[in-house]
Amino acid sequence: MLIVVDPHSGVPVYRQIMDQVKFHVASGLLNAGDELPSTRALSSELGINPMTISKAYSYLEREGVVERRPGRPLVVKAFETNQIHDNRINQLRESLAATVTIAKQLGIRNDEAIAVFRELLENEANPQAPDNEGKEQS
């Protein structure tokens, strides 16, 4: 399982871990029953405080992404198929929330914003027009 921590980003480390685990689950990289690395192993690997890992894991447990069994590593919980889909939608919704805030601050109208989103989606499907993407990221 690939987890990368960037201590310079403004996002708290435990949240970065949570987000990445959730993303891996949503994207199917982690499947139901897969074991998560132990707190110790992950803290040594990433070079971060084990308490932070525990914190991320316990939040994940509370959100129902993983489950704890006594004396065993944490495993990814089994989901219904539609639940997986719901999870993915939720991931997207969280990412877009920030974009919505920016759109509001820039005073962009809702229909314009939706048009930009649609345009980006279509460009992603059609890799011959990378220009727009570049502009958007800068």
């Binding site: 480390v13 040594s44 971060i48 405080n49 084990p50």
Partner: peptide, 27 residues
Amino acid sequence: SIQMLNETGTTILFSSHYMSDVERLAG
């Protein structure tokens, strides 16, 4: 330091000007 935390449960008070170290290590 992390090894000490994991194995011994050592309490750590540290000062650093490297904020990334602080973010990694400090609770």
